[in-house]
Nucleic acid binder design. Sequence first.
DNA 1: ACGATATGACCTCCGGGTAAGTTACCTCAG
DNA 2: CTGAGGTAACTTACCCGGAGGTCATATCGT
Lengths: 219, 219
Amino acid sequence: MAPRPNAGTKGVPRADREQEILRVASVAFGTDGFAATGVADVARAAGISKALVYSYFGSKEGLHAACLAEAGGLLAAEIERVARDGSAGVERGVRTLAAMFAVLDDRRHLWRLLRDPSAAVDGPAAEVVARYAARIEALAREGVLELLGDAGITDELDVSAMVRTWLGIVDSFMDWWVAHPDQDAGEMTRRVARLVTALAADHTRRLAARTPRREDAAP
Amino acid sequence: MAPRPNAGTKGVPRADREQEILRVASVAFGTDGFAATGVADVARAAGISKALVYSYFGSKEGLHAACLAEAGGLLAAEIERVARDGSAGVERGVRTLAAMFAVLDDRRHLWRLLRDPSAAVDGPAAEVVARYAARIEALAREGVLELLGDAGITDELDVSAMVRTWLGIVDSFMDWWVAHPDQDAGEMTRRVARLVTALAADHTRRLAARTPRREDAAP
DNA sequence: ACGATATGACCTCCGGGTAAGTTACCTCAG
DNA sequence: CTGAGGTAACTTACCCGGAGGTCATATCGT
C-alpha cells in the first residue's frame, strides 16, 4: 500500500528535493508559461505539498527566479562560447542555433523560460530574467551588428529590429522542436542548415532572373 | 457637473457601442493577451459597466471571438490578395509583410490577436481563431512549399519548421512595430527590404570567401 | 523527548459571471 | 397636451471558484 501521508521522507536530502522541484518547475513554466502554471501544479508534479515549495522558495516568484537563474546561466554561457569562436554573419547564427540544440537536447523548455511573455515585468524574478535576457540579447546584438555592418547598415533601428527578429527565429525553432520531441539536436542542426541553404538558393535564383542571359520570349 | 450615474445614453446607437467595445477589447487583448486582460478593464476603457459587456457579448470568450472574427477576416483577406499576385519565394514573403504593414498601420495589435499564446485552446473562441489561423497558416505553407520546392526540398518536417519560422518572423516584426509607434508602414517595408538585402549580401560574401581568388596566407 | 521537516486546512484576494434595481425613452388613454 | 405605465438600456452590488500564501499540527530521525 502507499506510504501514509506525512510519512517523513528524510531519506531524501534536501538539496536533491530542491533540484527535483526546480526541474519540474522549469518544465511547467517553460511549457505552459509563468502565468498559466500554478504552484499547486508544480507541487503535485514533484510529489510534494504546496507548502513545502513555499518553505523552500518563499514565493512563486522566488521559485521562478531560481529556475531562471539556472536556465539563464546555462544558455548565456553557451552562447558566449559560440560568440568567441570567430564566426560571423549568418554562419554565426547557424552555429549558435546548433550549440543551443546540443545543450538543450534534453531540456528544450529552458529557452522559453527566459522569453516568457507571461512573466511578471517587475519583482525579484524580473530582475534575474532581465540580467540574463539582457546578456543574451547583447550577444545577439553583437552578431547582428557584425552582419549588418558588413552590409553597410549601421542604423540603430535596423539593428534593433534585426535583433528582435533573430530572437524570434530562435523562438520559432525552439517551439517547433518542443512540438517534435522525436527530433534530436543533430537533426535540428542539419534542418536549419538545409533551410538556410534553400533561402540562399532562392536569392541566387532571383538574381539570375533579374539579369537573364538569353531566353526572354513572352509565352 | 458630470452626468449622474445611470444617465440614459440612448442617444448612442447600440451598433456604435458594440463597435467601440470591440475596438477597445481588440487593443487590450492584442496588447496584453487574452489571459491578462480582464473584462472589467475593457469595460472601464470603453467607459461602460462590466455587466453591459456581458449583455452584449455573453462572456469573455464571446467578446474574444468577436474580436477574432474581425481581425481574422481582415488579415486573411489581405494575405490571400498577395498570394494571388504571382510572386514567389522570399519576394512573396516581403510583399506579404508590406501588405500587412499597410493594412495594420493603425491597428498593429490585430496580428497578436490571432497568435496569442494565452488564448484558450478550446471553446467557441478557439474555434474562430482556429479557422482564421489555419487559413493564414495555409497561405504561409503555400509560400513555403513553393520556396523550398524550388530548392529541391519537399520533406514535410522541413516545410512545417519553415512555416513556423516564417510566422515567427512576422510575429517579431509586429512586436517590434508595436514597440516603435513612430514608424509607419512605408518605413517598415523599406526596413524589411534593407534587412533582407543585408542577409543576401552576407551569403554572397560567404560564397566569395569559400572560393578565394588569391591571398590565402596564414597570419 | 525534541527539533527539523512536511502537510492538510485555512485565509484572502482577484476576476468571471449574475441578479436586482435605476434611469431614460416611448406610447397612448384621457 | 400630459402623465401613467411599459420596456429597454444600463449600473451597482453581489456570488463563487480558483490560485497565491500561511499556520497549527503531525511525523520522522536522533
